[in-house]
């Protein structure tokens, strides 16, 4: 048994009235002895866009990686679309099929073409026909603005194009939730905009999104809530306007003064 909590717990609950798609209750996680996530309570409604900010090492990436079980948690409950994440492999597979994830380093498969990258999961997991999967892939490639790159290999694309392919790749699985783990942090400043545009459009279409990012412009444009994390805990929760105008905590103000 762990020691009792001594500090204050800030809950990032979804606004009432919505249909909850993600519920996190009392989440705790350790890397070895290091207590990386401490008493996280958070929920997200369908169609909400939640932006998670915080200094590096604050646990924000680990938090969203717990939601599709790329990281195992030791305490607490995570429920995604009615399925609780446990050691049950079927539950994990179920959740992973419902959640798309976009990584900081894109993680495209370098030995496959752009088209093969996108059609791989629909063909292998959803058992879709190849022609159908390719048609769908072209639809999403058009949506992210680069249908002409379909036959190229990831290594032949710019960073911004690669990240847009990665987004298209996630979308083909028809996810109910999209997780973004610092999607623009590895990009040249000139191409950040093209990736953010895609994400803004996605948000406007009603996709449920959890976005770890420092792009406060994005948060202001489409974010419903901002969650500020530090040292493994949620420190402050509010609308983007709240964070721009009157953050409550000293820690939040100090952080925002550095990134704005």
């Amino acid at each position: 048994m762990t020691e009792a909590t001594t500090g204050s717990i800030v809950r990032a609950d979804a606004p009432p009235g919505g249909e909850k798609i993600i519920e996190i209750e009392g989440l705790n996680k350790w890397f070895g002895d290091f207590h990386v996530l401490r008493d996280i309570y958070m929920s997200v409604n369908k169609g909400e866009v939640v932006v998670v900010i915080g200094p590096s090492g604050s646990g924000k990436s680990t938090l969203i990686r717990c939601i599709n079980r790329l990281e195992e948690h030791q305490e607490g409950r995570i429920v995604v679309d009615g399925v609780e994440l446990t050691d049950d492999v079927r539950a994990i597979d179920l959740v992973r099929r419902e959640t798309g994830m976009v990584f900081q380093q894109f993680n495209l498969f370098p030995h496959l073409t752009v088209l093969e990258n996108i059609t791989l999961a629909p063909i292998r997991v959803r058992k879709m026909k190849k022609s159908e999967a390719e048609e769908q892939a072209m639809y999403f490639l058009t949506k992210v603005g680069i249908p002409e790159q379909a036959r190229k290999y990831p290594g032949q694309l710019s960073g911004g194009q690669q990240q847009r392919v990665a987004i298209a790749r996630s979308l083909t699985m028809g996810p109910k939730v999209m997780l973004f783990d610092e999607p623009t942090s590895a990009l040249d400043p000139e191409v950040i905009g093209e990736v953010l545009d895609v994400m803004v459009n996605l948000a406007k279409e009603g996709m449920t999104m959890i976005v770890v990012t420092h792009e406060m412009g994005f948060a202001r444009e489409v974010g419903d809530r901002v969650v500020f994390m530090d040292a493994g805990q949620i420190v402050e929760v509010g609308t983007p306007e709240h964070f721009f105008q009157a953050p409550r905590e000293q820690r939040t103000r100090a952080f925002l003064s550095k990134i704005l």
């Binding site: 790329l70 992973r96 798309g100 993680n107 999961a121 292998r124 990665a166």
Partner: peptide, 23 residues
Amino acid sequence: VPRGQSEAARALGLSAWQTTMLI
């Protein structure tokens, strides 16, 4: 092979076996 490769494959819903054989 970077860890991110198998993470991306698992996140897409590929099984452990598929991830190993295809990625």
